[in-house]
Design a protein around this nucleic acid. Structure first.
Lengths: 169, 169
DNA sequence: ACAGAACGTTCTGTAAACGGAACGATCGTG
DNA sequence: CACGATCGTTCCGTTTACAGAACGTTCTGT
């Protein structure tokens, strides 16, 4: 998808999630109504100032509209917030939400891959498919991800941070 | 600092870190040399397309130039990558680097505050000032931060993720 | 059914972001 | 010392992102 279209779609979604009309957001942000309409439909290439005015009025960080796209699975919704590489390994940090009512299974990753989960809220059932374990709010789990593993929310949805480490190469 | 100036300064720094001349980056990114010069000095309000062309040529995510500013302390360098709030608490996720050769001390935070550290590389000495402990690569530590605590790198610099949880109010 | 208001889109004139050319400054190199 | 190459800045004509007006459409209330 075209960059401007992607950003426009995210803006529109963000605005609608907050129940704002296009006219109302235009008023609050000081951005022209016409400008906003064309931005949301991907017909314009916004300036930094305009994006900033809009995300501020929407009470969202700029990264919400320009950041990487979320990864969506059966029960897992994740967005990459950081990525670090050193001589031996790559670390990827995801903001993760596990939705209750479904189980997400993941195949084995490259040998040496390891995952960490830090739970903010809810209780998760994660780890190797053969022996998963539960982690509650404030808890931490670590498991080898070079075997099949799964993610599941026990009861309410789970919010947290997932860190994946895999060897470089 | 003005937004355009802040972004300009980050672009300049990013380019210089890679040892590129302004002319060379202009050539690689397809962005006009004059445009780039004025951007870096904060005299222009870049469009999304221009920012994208530049960060792509610099092999950096867009968030590097539009993301939040780093927090710098005696030994700790941290940037906030995410912030989540629910009914009971606020969670802040930081990419953290602890530089060796200095100890960073932190006063007690609000009661109920808790910190987690996930170490990517290096060995950290962290936790309550009265009883710190060591965490190596791939390790995880958790401590109460409502008492004085400290951060220190043992040997080489430490890279990792720091998560701070504090009660809402 | 008809006002009136609010919605999102399209139009219009202006300000400014763009690429590229011209410029002086600072290098190495013969 | 020239000479050419490359640096970053300033200038210029074109393109386009902007704010605001004008527009057709969809509600809501009397």
């Amino acid at each position: 998808m075209e960059l401007a279209q992607e950003v426009g779609a995210r803006l529109r979604r963000l605005r609608q999630d907050r129940g704002l009309s296009l006219s109302e957001l235009a008023r609050r942000s000081g951005v022209g109504k016409g400008t906003l309409s064309e931005l949301e439909t991907g017909q314009r290439n916004p300036t930094l100032e305009t994006l900033y005015a809009l995300t501020t009025a929407l009470d969202a960080p700029l990264s919400t509209v320009v950041g990487p796209a979320p990864v969506q699975g059966a029960a897992v919704h994740a967005v990459l917030t950081d990525r670090v590489q050193d001589a031996a390994a790559v670390w990827e940090v995801y903001r993760i939400r596990i939705q209750s009512g479904a189980v997400q299974r993941s195949a084995a990753h490259v040998p040496g891959t390891e995952e960490h989960l830090l739970v903010f809220s809810g209780t998760a059932r994660v780890g190797p498919a053969s022996a998963p374990f539960e982690v509650g709010p404030g808890g931490h789990a670590r498991w080898a991800a070079d075997v099949p593993h799964l993610y599941e929310a026990v009861g309410r949805d789970v919010e947290g941070v997932l860190v994946v480490r895999y060897p470089v190469g």
